[in-house]
Amino acid sequence: MSELIVIKDLHASVAGKEILKGLNLTIGTGEVHAIMGPNGAGKSTLSAVLTGNPQYEVTGGEVWLRGKNLLAMPPEQRAREGVFLSFQYPVEIPGVSMVNFMRTAVNERRQYQGLPALSASEFLRLMREKRKLVQITDKMQGRSVNEGFSGGEKKKNEIFQMAMLEPCFSILDETDSGLDIDALRIVSEGVNRLRTADNAFMVITHYQRLLDYIVPDYVHVLADGRIVKTGDKTLALELEEHGYAEFE
């Protein structure tokens, strides 16, 4: 294991209200970290800040990804460095086809890595291979990005994009919300098959259920903008039983 991402004393606010109040967290390669906590604790703010969402303002602290200053990069550069967010609410993009969208994204990443662009046939082969992972149909692939997709299809599509882009650091923001048990299993198995010794995952969830499928190495409780408790997977079970009352 080596340090992949180091978050030091991170402060952030949205619309002038401070949400993150000095968050510290280090994640190593090969690890899965679960972030749990009550509503409003700052879980989604953390994912937004790490990916550079312009609606959030970083007011203090540092984030280092493999020794590079993440907070100094625009969102697209963070993505090309291998930071991936599975959105809680994936955005619909009418008129932009999945194929065009993914080809542009994959080739931007490859160009950044100094690799040649994939040809049309190489790209389609890659799409065919990766979509099996989360059982995405041909039909979904031909449509505009997320347009008219069901909740489950949108989440599968996020994991499909993760598979296509092969990130080193993936954030799953409430990926379990709105999923039925079958979709949850497909999405979780997809994630598990993407785990390697070189990448890492931050799984943000309100419920323990997802962690039955994606088993974390560490569980952190995020409350009032800070990590207030850290444990192994048994902490998630404790939280399930006792709730977050002691942290609120």
């Binding site: 994936p90 955005v91 969208f101």
Partner: peptide, 20 residues
């Protein structure tokens, strides 16, 4: 932002949306 998060540059993302 969604497109940027996938590695597509800000101006390219805007152009793709306008073209669509």
């Amino acid at each position: 932002f969604y497109m940027q998060q996938r590695g597509i540059g800000y101006n390219d993302a805007r152009r793709m949306l306008i073209a669509a």
